[in-house]
Nucleic acid binder design. Structure first.
Lengths: 112, 112
DNA sequence: TCGATATTTCTAGAATTTTAGAACCAACAG
DNA sequence: CTGTTGGTTCTAAAATTCTAGAAATATCGA
């Protein structure tokens, strides 16, 4: 069940989520999962595409899962990874929401 | 002049920008600027709000400026900082664009 | 049970980041 | 020119992150 963007738990996760995607390797991992869509990819599929050592990949995947950007589901021996795109959209929406929040004169904020 | 989101220069900056906002302190700085709207804030204004030592603040601001998330303009002795909200929107748009890009069967990508 | 495949955990070195005091510089008012 | 205000650069210590080999674990087929 996905929480709403105004949920304090989500607020708490904004920086960790951005940090998770702020690493080139993890960004590449996340992107390959985003590109793969709802079906996602098994860990081995990501490894094949990106040629990352298994332990490094596992480490990065864990961070993505920890912050909720990726979900994993075991199917027998293979672990299926899927990017939760909604989570990222919600995170971005937090910024949108508070744009110009401190501007008293509404004629002074043409951006939002 | 802002570049389009498909510009390779922008692509190159995605991870650094997300990383820049992935730090709690920098995220707080950026947010206070976003809230301040087009007018932005002088460095001292940010410091007053967030109570960060000047050298630490200066260091973080530089990183935000380096990746294009914040612009600075000197007005006499004070340095005015403004969040470039468009840059962040463009960065986020890059994700949106490539969602499900690798999915061949269009019935398999209900997310985009 | 044995072996193969898929993935994680342990470990540790290298690199980077974060933090902030202290010294420094630049612009301006007097 | 002198002092003050606004900000940066220098420096360095502490913390964190990144990377990947090696060993370990788990599932399944034969």
């Amino acid at each position: 069940m996905s929480q709403t963007a105004s949920n304090p738990v989500q607020e708490l996760l904004v920086a960790p989520r951005l940090a998770a995607l702020g690493n080139e390797t993890r960004l590449a991992i996340y992107r390959s999962l985003v590109r793969a869509g709802q079906n996602g990819l098994p860990v081995a599929g990501v490894q094949e595409r990106l040629q990352i050592p298994a332990s490094t990949l596992s480490h990065h995947l864990r961070r993505l899962v920890e912050v909720g950007l990726v979900t994993q589901e075991r199917e027998g021996t293979t672990l299926h990874c899927t990017a939760d795109f909604q989570v990222m959209s919600d995170t971005f929406a937090l910024f949108q929401r508070e744009c110009c929040a401190d501007v008293s004169d509404p004629t002074q904020n043409p951006c939002c």
